[in-house]
Design a protein around this nucleic acid. Structure first.
Lengths: 234, 234
DNA sequence: GGGTCCCCTTAACTAGTACTTAACCATTTT
DNA sequence: AAAATGGTTAAGTACTAGTTAAGGGGACCC
């Protein structure tokens, strides 16, 4: 149906009968939906590398929609947030809470209208999302290119830009043989003897990080290049 | 819909497919856009309306961007003018045409970049889009952008406008890596070596304020930029 | 009109970092 | 065994950023 992975929607709505209606309709429309019955649980579920859009009811027990939005904004300023508000709410109050790309939709709304609003947001952020918040899961390791962080079991390595560039390239081409020349041209932009030796130094550094997960290893193909072996399940 | 009147943009661009793309994106971003396919019609449209900003393609049939700019300058010396130029153009030639608040942006540019540049300009002339009273809580610190005040435990620092602009930007994008270039484009409007050093001076100043709260810190990501680390719990 | 103040930019010096180069050793290939 | 390739560590170097102070332009005031 969709070659692209489904967009994940964080839906926070305390009226569960309404929540399920929205959820089912969004699933029908090809989204993946996580429904939370209150504000706090929405915050707990949130993960910036995971969700494409957040739909937050404004009036909820245990942290209202605005509080949740502020929290989410601290964690990601990219993800679009759409408020679901009751008609009774004054516009000023809502406006005041808007920041950046946020919008709101007044209950009762049609699913069509909701889907349209969501599309507008997603169209706007899809490009950025696809190249701005890159993260990879490599075995037990989690690598966020945008944060320059490589995590394993709570241990965090702060990478330099070059290390991250190299690792990103390896991740994007894992489990196949990469010629030295290929890596150099793509990551350094040119290929000469000294940069080749420089690359070897970086390879050593990356291997130190990978020690933590024996399933992940950077194999040398003598005279040719490397192969970044990673578990392929999942 | 919006209580604040929308900012009107005069967009002169002879490549209509590009013109429509820009127009649609600007409308999405909340602007009102008048698109003109050549220089003369841009001049005709100009005096009839009160525009907040002009975006002029340099190379156009029937009066080029510079000619249009001269004409507009006769009618108003306040309105910001932003040129859209082809990469091939020599910088000197463009610089020569700059006057006062004018700037230029080189094609191809991202809509993000265009919006950022426009924002910087508009902020300079009119007092912000609609932030009546922007304030942030950062750990133990309390920052009121509108009052230019940073408070901690009864101690108050009076910030300058630039300090506040920078801090506001950092607050709005905390806990993620911000490239130097990104900060410069957003806060200063352009990115060159000296402004970069100027930014470093401001960074030093802000860090002095943050000394009061160890939970808040402005981390350097060497060779990349900064990350404004603020507590996210609570 | 000149002086003063304020704030931003530029300069200058210092400190620190990341990448390259070198050196030496290990492994593989011929 | 000799030669080539790659692993590893350390030294070297260019660059980046921190910091403080000196310039310099604009606003305000007398």
């Amino acid at each position: 149906m969709q070659q692209v992975p489904k967009v994940k929607v964080l839906l926070a709505e305390d009226d569960l009968s309404l929540g399920y209606v929205i959820k089912d309709n969004l699933i029908d429309a090809g989204y993946e939906v996580i429904l939370c019955p209150d504000g706090q649980s929405a915050i707990d579920k949130f993960d910036k590398n995971d969700f494409g859009i957040c739909l937050l009811d404004v009036m909820m027990p245990n942290k209202d929609g605005f509080a949740v939005a502020r929290k989410i904004r601290q964690l990601s300023d990219m993800v679009p947030i759409l408020f679901l508000t009751a008609r009774s709410m004054e516009e000023d109050k809502i406006k005041g809470f808007q920041s950046g790309a946020d919008d709101y939709i007044t209950k009762p709304f049609s699913i069509q209208e909701l889907l349209m609003r969501m599309e507008v947001f997603l169209r706007r952020t899809r490009k950025m999302h696809s190249d701005k918040s890159l993260s990879f899961t490599i075995g037990k390791l989690n690598f966020s290119y945008t944060d320059l962080k490589l995590k394993i079991d709570k241990e965090v390595f702060n990478l330099t830009q070059k290390e991250a560039d190299l690792l990103k390239f390896l991740c994007e081409h894992s489990n196949r043989i990469l010629k030295r020349e290929e890596v150099l041209l793509n990551v350094w932009g040119k290929d000469d003897y000294f940069l080749g030796r420089s690359m070897d130094v970086f390879i050593t550094k990356l291997r130190k990080y990978f020690k933590a997960d024996p399933e992940v290893n950077l194999e040398t193909i003598h005279g040719v290049g490397f192969r970044f072996n990673t578990p392929t399940t999942g």
